[in-house]
Design a protein around this nucleic acid. Structure first.
Lengths: 229, 229
DNA sequence: CGGATTGTTGACTCGTTTCAAGTAGAGTGG
DNA sequence: CCACTCTACTTGAAACGAGTCAACAATCCG
């Protein structure tokens, strides 16, 4: 539940900027601080772009093609910064996977007011670059990998981003459903399920309940992910 | 053939910065100005990231998965700015589709020296955001569209980026081969060919030679591309 | 505990890939 | 300008991996 204090945490933690300073106050005027319950979509301005800071929680960024087909373009977690374009050929929405606190800015105005502050711009640049590099990796996976490679890649990426280590093997509590994984990897829910079964049979992962996944052998998993060496 | 003067054009045209100023000279020290013949790859630093300005020509940014599988992650043309990450799970290379002039910077050093100049940072941010949005659209296509939708989308995107209008319908001289198109859309060369044949049979496009494509009916093409409305 | 939701498994279908053959295009030298 | 040649493109037939449809099982939550 984001109190107004989440704005201070955002500015200090992400940009190293004091909220009381001139830039901090100017940006504060633009901020819409809200909490979004699990399963709801964030109220974005779809005619202009938005910049969203995930104060806490998990979200999926969904691209809508025609005919109720959806592609999850990215998952974002607490501390992440998400840029969302205005609708054009495709529409985008940001949905909470669990109750999440968001700080929403109109993108252009934010950049205009932030551009005076080099440290903010530098952080923004790094974040955007990371998002771009991740998106390219995703494109590689969607274009050239089979179902098993996609799921293996996905699990390794999540292990890295959610990093919950435990005694040598990695334990994940995935905040997203099988359907979300499928919508992210360009596969159906059934195919995801079958690939989980295969990885289980091969002893590479264990699952318990709907969200818990244990990566028993990350090295073998990386091989199946089609990573270089 | 990029003379050293292409650096001035780059700084003035892209960033609106004078090459003779302090920042201009500091960045100049980092620039490697080269010409890359058709079919050759740009000499990038693969242990650190690179930032490449395409002075003139056309290039493809290729991601390499294991087993000689390639995915073209983006095409870039004269005036574009490309950020290339250091190699990790996947390696990237930038190959010239025709003889091209490039200006190559080490990414981190460039950002460090440019961050003093708000106008440069602002342009970088815009460029990165555009690249990210394009990459997401690509991800949507790779994950959720069939062969015909992908090719239709591709042709429309290229028409927009290469913009050669002529008497109502759009005329394209594609600098890339069918193989490149396939590697970009996650399809085989044969599938690309078959889809071209179908679009020709439907009267939506005409082709002549290997590179010339005429979009006879962009509206109908947009419908087949799976765009909203 | 009961009911709704989410995940699993099987049988069959379909679109794209693969393999193979043939055709057109672009560049070169006579 | 034409024949030659290499490469790029096109088309067909068969194979395969993921999708679809359908039934069932497990999990979560009130």
């Amino acid at each position: 539940m984001p109190a107004s204090g989440s704005y201070d945490i955002f500015l200090r933690g992400t940009f190293g900027i004091e909220p009381g300073g001139a830039t901090g106050r100017k940006l504060r005027e633009l901020a819409k601080i809200i909490s979004v319950p699990r399963g709801s979509i964030a109220p974005l301005d779809h005619t202009h772009g938005s910049l969203v800071f995930i104060a806490d929680g998990s979200t999926k960024l969904v691209a809508h093609a025609s005919h109720d087909r959806e592609q999850i373009v990215a998952f974002h977690f607490g501390g992440d910064l998400v840029a969302i374009p205005p609708d054009s050929e495709h529409a985008f929405s940001l949905m909470a996977l669990k109750d999440s606190g968001l700080i929403i800015f109109p993108a252009r105005e934010f950049y205009d007011r932030a551009s005076a502050e080099p440290t903010i711009m530098r952080v923004l640049l790094d974040r955007f670059q990371t998002a771009l590099f991740r998106c390219r990796d995703k494109a590689l996976g969607l274009g050239r990998k089979n179902a098993q490679e996609r799921l293996a890649s996905f699990l390794l990426t999540m292990a890295e981003r959610l990093d919950n280590d435990a005694n040598g093997c990695r334990v994940l509590d995935l905040p997203m459903s099988r359907r979300d994984i499928g919508d992210s990897l360009g596969l159906t829910i059934e195919t995801i399920s079958r690939q989980f079964s295969e990885l289980r049979a091969a002893g590479l992962v264990e699952t318990s309940g709907r969200s818990r996944v244990v990566l028993k052998d990350p090295v073998a998993l990386a091989q199946r992910a089609g990573h270089l060496q």
